[in-house]
């Protein structure tokens, strides 16, 4: 019986490993199929290794942006590979190098394990750009890294808030999932203000990106009768939850309202709230790195440093236009 089980297990693992290698091959083939399209001599071959668009609204916009900028009309031949798994990404990157792309663009799933592949790229004369995320490798292995600076994004929002010149700042601070990059960056700038005494912390709680939780937090403040005039929610969903609580208790908000509402991410629906004057500010960690990289590739700009901080955006309800929503809004 035991023997039988053992052999069964063995066969099972064999079949599984066969299946998985098959999968990996399948994954590797996808970019190769892209390479079959005939290309003129003038086109620049670009291989993009990214996380899948299903990861988030951010990634969806990021992928769309890449596809739009590195298009055939702009003189590029684009090959893409999307995965959340580092090993699959590494394999795909190696595949791109073997196929002989001119440029390799990487947003890695994990920061480690990329040395070997990037060295191979260097030897093969493939130039590497990192976007969105840094990788733990020697700087000499890549041309430049175009990344977001989450704390700059928080700073931008807080600077905007300070520029409103309120008599006093009583802030309800609704945080994202504790420890995430976005939460740390967006919290940091505000914490500095609390520490300096310029702003008063009414409450600082995490709603772990959960809209309903955000509503409960704001509700408990309203019920306690404490004064507040700013809601700083670290993403759009939580800002919406907070506003729902305000609406139920008859508190006005937005432009000309009693409470300033701030969100992050710049979803299209959130920007429409801004345009309608229901919210005041929406900040964005920009997913649009493609144009910066394209300019570098085509020599329109030159990188002054290895690490290029992508310009972050923040929108004020008073100056926002429909055009901004169409260009910068995420989702539908």
């Amino acid at each position: 019986m035991k023997k039988k089980l053992g052999s069964l297990l063995l066969v099972g693992t064999l079949v599984m490993s066969l299946l998985f290698t098959g999968c990996n091959k399948g994954g590797g083939n996808t970019p190769a199929q892209g390479g079959n399209t005939p290309s003129g001599s003038g086109t620049i071959k670009v291989g993009v290794v990214n996380n899948p668009p299903s990861e988030s609204g951010y990634r969806e916009a990021n992928v769309k942006d890449m596809e739009a900028v590195f298009s055939a009309e702009n003189g590029y031949e684009l090959k893409t590979f999307y995965s959340l798994k580092n090993d699959e990404q590494l394999q795909a990157a190696q595949g791109f190098i073997t196929e002989g792309v001119d440029y390799l663009l990487v947003s890695a799933a994990e920061t480690t394990g990329w040395d070997e592949v990037l060295k191979n790229a260097q030897e093969a004369g493939v130039k590497v750009y990192l976007f969105d995320r840094m990788i733990d490798v020697d700087e000499s292995l890549y041309e430049a890294a175009v990344v977001s600076d989450m704390s700059a994004e928080g700073d931008l929002a807080v600077q905007w808030l300070l520029s409103q010149n309120l008599d006093e700042y009583n802030v309800i601070h609704i945080q994202g999932a504790m420890g995430s990059d976005a939460q740390i960056g967006r919290t940091g700038a505000l914490d500095a203000q609390f520490a300096s005494g310029k702003m008063k912390k009414v409450v600082q709680q995490t709603a772990t990106w959960d809209e309903a939780e955000a509503k409960k937090i704001v509700e408990s403040v309203i019920n306690s009768g404490e004064k507040f005039n700013v809601i700083y929610a670290e993403n759009d969903g939580m800002a919406k939850g907070a506003v729902a609580a305000l609406d139920e208790h008859g508190i006005t908000h937005g432009v000309d309202g009693d409470v300033i509402v701030m969100g992050f991410d710049c979803n299209k629906w959130a920007l429409r709230e801004l345009l309608a004057g229901n919210w005041n500010y929406d900040g964005q960690c920009s997913p649009f790195q493609a144009q910066v990289i394209s300019d570098l590739i085509q020599g329109k700009t030159t990188a002054t440093a290895k690490k290029i901080i992508n310009e972050e955006k923040g929108f004020d309800a008073k100056t926002l236009t429909q055009e901004d929503i169409d260009t910068y809004g995420l989702g539908e």
Binding site: K216, E219, N223, E248, H249
Partner: peptide, 21 residues
């Protein structure tokens, strides 16, 4: 009892929050 932004008179308070949530 509060007047909400839709113009309805509604109950408000922690107890209401609890049974609602």
């Amino acid at each position: 009892v509060e007047l909400n932004n839709d113009g309805n008179r509604v109950l408000a308070g922690n107890l209401i929050s609890i049974i609602n949530a």
